[in-house]
């Protein structure tokens, strides 16, 4: 097991290098545009000389590789530059927004698992009956609604019409308030949850149906084991294994999807930060966003891989990776 983890970590390195390279290439592509944006944001009148001077100051006229190495060095020591917009340290700003996003991600994943696992299993066990059809239709509709539409609809219904919930929430420590607004998390979580539940329910249903058709289930039935035991002690474990893989992929999506949802609900996380940065062309911040999200995604996948190997005894005892 330890060798497996070590091998995986080693494989990470080229990928991480590739990620950082790509992120940096982004900034490089922006080129003069970035500097123009910077100067404009600072309210400086833009002439070619000033641009060139600024470029020289920022070291942007160096060759690509030099810039990349410098930036990478800064990255490794935690220095990601300063924001073009606020002038503050990118790393500090970025990390201050992370907790909000983590909270939202965690809440969504929790809600998703709690709803989609029972629904998916129910749908599979009652295959082709009314319950199954109802769940499938709902999942389908949920899959076909863009998340920003869902967000707006939820706002319309719950915040505007019914006035049950506030539209805008302030999560952690923003504008003086240090309390976490639990009420404010409901709508964004619901938005993210609807899309995820729809997708997961279908997947879980398919997996359970698949498993129920396998020979070992026939064997258990022929031995007189009750359906409930078959379901919960045998099939569910396979579902869990599959769930782990799904979750890893989804967390990646979530971290990206939260950009839209966070913006709509003004949830002060890194997603909203990213969108704002992109709109204002705050390139160092954009870079930081891309790098951090990719690293997080890669780490999540690694953890999922490890979990998967630990859960499936065939793989574990078989010695090698499946």
């Amino acid at each position: 097991m330890a060798t497996f983890i070590a091998k995986r970590l080693l494989q990470l390195i080229p990928i991480l290098l590739g990620i950082t390279l790509l992120s940096f290439a982004l900034m490089y592509l922006a080129g003069g545009d970035a500097v123009t944006a910077l100067l404009e944001n600072q309210g400086v009148a833009v002439t070619q000389e000033i641009i060139d001077a600024k470029r020289h100051e920022l070291g942007l006229d160096q060759p690509f590789v030099v810039q990349y190495v410098r930036w990478l060095g800064g990255l490794l020591s935690g220095n990601m530059g300063t924001s073009y917009v606020s002038g503050k340290d990118v790393f500090a700003t970025f990390s201050s927004k992370l907790p909000a996003t983590f909270l939202l991600t965690f809440a969504s994943v929790l809600v998703t698992i709690l709803i989609s696992v029972p629904l998916g299993i129910l749908s599979a066990v009652r295959q082709n009956r009314f319950v199954d059809y109802a769940i499938r239709v709902l999942s389908f509709v949920g899959n076909s609604l863009p998340n920003f539409f869902v967000a707006l609809l939820l706002i319309l219904v719950f915040a505007v019409t019914l006035r049950w919930l506030p539209v805008v929430s302030s999560p952690i420590g923003s504008s003086g308030s240090t309390s976490i607004s639990l009420v404010g998390i409901v709508l964004p979580t619901a938005t993210l949850g609807i899309a995820m539940v729809s997708k997961y329910t279908r997947q879980i249903r398919a997996t359970v149906l698949d498993e129920l058709n396998k020979p070992y289930v026939a064997g258990a039935r022929a031995r007189g084991v009750s359906e409930r035991v078959i379901l919960f002690r045998h099939v569910l474990k396979s579902v869990m294994i599959m769930l782990v893989t799904l979750l890893a992929l989804s967390i990646g999506d979530l971290l990206g999807g939260t950009a839209i949802v966070e913006s709509i609900f003004m949830w002060d996380g890194v997603g909203k930060l990213a969108v704002d940065s992109i709109t204002m062309r705050d390139y160092p911040m954009i870079q930081a966003y891309v790098v951090w999200m990719a690293i997080a995604y890669v780490i999540v996948n690694l953890v999922a891989d490890i979990l998967y190997h630990w859960l499936d005894p065939r793989v574990r005892l078989g010695g090698d990776e499946a």
Partner: peptide, 15 residues
């Protein structure tokens, strides 16, 4: 009682 063609397949792989 039933004896399967492939008895190993008739057993759950993870237990």
């Amino acid at each position: 009682a039933l004896v399967f063609q492939d008895c190993l397949a008739a057993l759950t792989p993870i237990r």
